[in-house]
Design a protein around this nucleic acid. Sequence first.
DNA 1: GCCGTAGGCTAAAGCCATTAGCCAGCCGGG
DNA 2: CCCGGCTGGCTAATGGCTTTAGCCTACGGC
Lengths: 208, 208
Amino acid sequence: MPRAGLSPQAVLDLALDVVDAGGPTGWADLGLSAVAHRAGVAVPSLYKHVAGLPALRAAVAQRCVVEFTVVLEAAVASAQGTCGSVGASTGSEADPSPRTGPSSSAQALRALADATRAYALAHPGRYRAVQSTEATLLGSQSAAVAELVAQAVARLGTPRDQWVDQVRTVRAAVHGFVELELTGGFGLPDDVDASFRYLVDTLVAGLS
Amino acid sequence: MPRAGLSPQAVLDLALDVVDAGGPTGWADLGLSAVAHRAGVAVPSLYKHVAGLPALRAAVAQRCVVEFTVVLEAAVASAQGTCGSVGASTGSEADPSPRTGPSSSAQALRALADATRAYALAHPGRYRAVQSTEATLLGSQSAAVAELVAQAVARLGTPRDQWVDQVRTVRAAVHGFVELELTGGFGLPDDVDASFRYLVDTLVAGLS
DNA sequence: GCCGTAGGCTAAAGCCATTAGCCAGCCGGG
DNA sequence: CCCGGCTGGCTAATGGCTTTAGCCTACGGC
């Protein structure tokens, strides 16, 4: 009986594979059975590495939220042309030039929207995990993406007392679009990319 | 052993009760076990009235879609002052002038948005059913709500080649907002009603 | 080389949907 | 009025799921 050499990390990775392999329903279908099968291991063996299905799902959700946040941060960073410096420059605001280009005020917002949809289309299961109840129960990290949107909204120069409404509007519109797209809610064959561009354009125009 | 007097209809009604009783997760948690328990009947007895769990879920989804469509139709009808006919004047906009006023071009859109959110908040489980994969697989009726949005968008007087994008934008924004609200995605305590008003305002302004 | 731990296993229980087969209550015909 | 058939309930059993308990062996430090 050679050992499988599992670990909490390895189980988590396998669970992510299951989520990815399941398409849009990969998150909903994530269970210990699938993970064990993929690990080439009997189901109860997993309990040596994870506390149970809820814990595993929570861990997967958390990891997806973190990954998603990193992706969004990278998107907004590269959209602001701070991509000149190489590594370790986590200071996205370290740029000494305070001027934001005239049209660049909305660049962060567009980058966030595009990155969100790209992530959701590339990893539908993970995106569902990010938006899951398990993820929102974590709470802490979920606020990070809202914070990113808030910073992007702040660059538009609108009054502060509208920020909350604007952040909610942006998140709702982008999330709703992606959600409908993933569920196949867009019946007509018309170009979905164009529709998303229209949505983002409408948003940046409406919020300015 | 007195008979329970079930029927396909009765089982469907009980399933809807289960969905309603389960809150936002009522749709996800809908199973034969809960329905049978509520009916005071053993689980296999249900198979005399429904083909199985997938069929029951499909039937529930279909019924919710129809109900939702009717609610939206009523909302847009009463918003256009067509409520002059019988009694039950729920029409708060009982304005007798039949011509669509200048700003009334967006009334249908606002009515649709408000009615959607009201329905989702009043019946979270049913709303989830409406947006479920089972509902979209039905397809036919799902197009009806899109058609309603299309008619409302058409009243804005925008060029025809934008209609598809605009319908998608409206559906995405409203659905995304409601979805985030149901999942508890709005962390801050700020007024959610005001945020929704802001979203709708932004939409009608952006689409005009 | 040995021994303890830890990581695999099987067995078993409880929940779920589903199928098969039984049995009684109701309705219509004689 | 009685009786037979159908229909709608039931129990039993199957297979899949998570979870717990308990065993057993492979691996690493002494």
